[in-house]
Design a protein around this nucleic acid. Structure first.
Lengths: 354, 354
DNA sequence: TTGTATGCGTTATCAT
DNA sequence: ATGATAACGCATACAA
């Protein structure tokens, strides 16, 4: 920090304690390879001189950093100002987990690029990388293939698919969406729309769509493509998707949104058209971002367990750095019931459009 | 990253390019102290071998890191799970700003402790520190005094006060609260309550309280201590503060909350007691967190310019590291008018309590 | 312009 | 249990 005066080094401690520098180094690490009295002398001297090990020197010598890097990949489409609140929440739990395990965390917001990996991996800034937000999945996979083959240590928060390169940790999206949809059905809703990109480019949303379809199928309800609209995770797209549905004359009494942001936008759009939530249309989201509990009506949603996710990601990455062969893992979700789905209907709701 | 095989070093490049290691080092830095053809050879070799400078070695040699550390200090009181969304937003803008300027960002959530400074400053992990959330101000100031005297490089996001140690950057809280209160008065509200700790331990909230008082005074309105309640920035405390007001039989037609979280809690509390917002009581918040736009009714609030703040903090810190003598700075706020204050009243509102 | 040699502050190996 | 010494990979002072 202070650059004016020379750093106090282990040599200074050695001089003060009257031992060799090597002994200082040994005494400061935990091993029992030093006599108690020597250790005491050294510790005392270190305290007096306010000595701390220089991590750069140590890292250089040890060839490791005890640092993890997080790459928050912003979707090219999103606005400059806002970061997906869900990722921010993940970032929080990752930071905590890393700190608990004695790792530093380097954070960066960038577009994914192969350069980035070089910058953080090859430069020995970090021992491992956490990817948060991969953008287009197809694109992403092609990019990390090389990384994986080179034996790099990294974990991606995202869809868990068979045959994918690298290691992924993510929510059980199908299960979550299934629970949400089943909840709606249980409440008496019959014509349930799905808002979210269901293509291979967004496997997490696709999995949610699959869960939705399964629930519909199990209940003997038809699956209508006319009740699905693509949407990326933003309020604007949620609103647009609802308008698209409405303008096409689609009839529906409920919406499963692939994310809370989409749900928020959908509710706004519905309201703008004078359609009441949850009376006419029930809405359920996905993520459980902070705003979900504050909106009107409070949003029923599928909560992703960010606390657990963060801890798991960090643990796995550290294990991977240690040479372990870690796999991918699915984390269960839970349905948070609030008021956006209303109560159980005795009879099917009267659809707002004939 | 890859630990199995030996790193490619500048010596490898030197061998491949047929020059000395020193020349490689020179060629890779920008100076013009190397011939074009040599530079080309070196660059080519580096590209071929996918060579990247080892930052640990470089940092050790250069005695600097080009890394900034952010310490997100969690209030001891807050729950494990949640981080103040406002700080998260600040974190986002700081991260962006640091990346743009070529600095890495080390992030940590911890209680403030003198150890922490030692850990990040003395260990040469970072060239400078950004403190986000100082907890109790009186306490904090006593802690950083030594830091400042030691010539450490750090900037705190917080209140800008005369005579304080170190460098602070923060919003013009008095101006913001003044604008919010004046807005309420302009709308015809007469008995305006203030929710937020107005003690020396929270100078930012105090400044907001001062702004509120000034606006009241300017309008010839009385300042009643019976209309003020302490509250830290959380939904729970906002709700409790409103209940306290109500239970004491206080009469008020508007609330200036010292933060959005407090405002959110206040609105909830009001609603629980059957008091309508904004009809009976208008509410204005402070921060403009993401949820502010989503709640019912959408919250009128004083926006803190986090984008600008993040950029300024980073710029100042880098300047400070470079040896400049930077001062403290106040950033203007802006009033975001949404619906929680209602329209202008032709006559004073009928108070909900006689 | 380029090469040689040295040191940044550690940790680890080899003696003692 | 402790001391001497080498090496981690780079950037620079000095020489050529």
């Amino acid at each position: 920090m202070k650059l004016k005066t020379r750093r106090t080094t282990s040599f200074d401690i050695a001089a003060l304690a009257g031992v060799s520098q090597a002994t200082v180094s040994r005494a400061l690490r935990d091993g029992t390879l030093v006599s108690p009295e020597t250790r005491h002398k050294v510790n005392e001297a270190a305290r007096q001189l306010n000595y701390k090990v220089d991590v750069n020197a140590r890292n250089l010598r040890l060839q490791q950093t005890r640092t993890l890097a997080v790459l928050l990949n912003e979707d090219p489409g999103t606005s400059e100002a806002q970061i997906n609140p869900f990722f921010l929440s993940m970032l929080g739990s990752i930071t905590r987990a890393a700190a608990q395990r004695g790792y530093d965390l380097l954070v960066s917001f960038q577009q994914f690029s192969s350069d980035w990996v070089a910058d953080y991996g090859n430069t020995k800034r970090a021992d491992g990388i956490i990817f948060l937000g991969y953008g287009d999945y197809v694109d992403y996979v092609s990019k990390i293939k090389a990384l994986d083959e080179a034996g790099a240590n990294f974990i991606t928060w995202g869809p868990v698919l068979s045959g994918q390169p690298g290691h992924f940790i993510g929510s059980d999206n199908a299960q979550g969406a299934h629970a949400a949809t089943a909840h709606l059905i249980h409440l008496g809703r019959q014509r349930i729309a799905f808002l979210g990109d269901a293509s291979e480019h967004s496997p997490e949303f696709s999995a949610r769509y699959q869960g939705y379809c399964t629930a519909l199928g199990n209940a003997g309800l038809p699956i209508a493509k006319t009740l699905q609209r693509d949407a990326h995770s933003s309020e604007a797209e949620g609103r647009a998707a609802v308008f698209s549905l409405l303008d096409a004359g689609a009839r529906f009494d409920a919406i499963v949104a692939a994310s809370d942001l989409i749900a928020l936008g959908a509710i706004k759009g519905l309201r703008e058209r004078g359609i009441r939530v949850p009376d006419a249309v029930a809405v359920v989201g996905f993520d459980d971002i902070e705003a979900a509990g504050f909106i009107d009506p409070p949003l029923t949603t599928v909560k992703q367990d960010t606390m657990r996710a963060g801890a798991l990601i960090v643990d796995r990455l550290i294990a991977q750095i240690g040479g372990a062969d870690v796999g991918s893992t699915l984390i269960p979700t839970s349905l948070i019931v609030r008021e956006s789905c209303g109560a159980r209907l005795p009879v099917p709701v009267k659809l707002h459009l004939a």
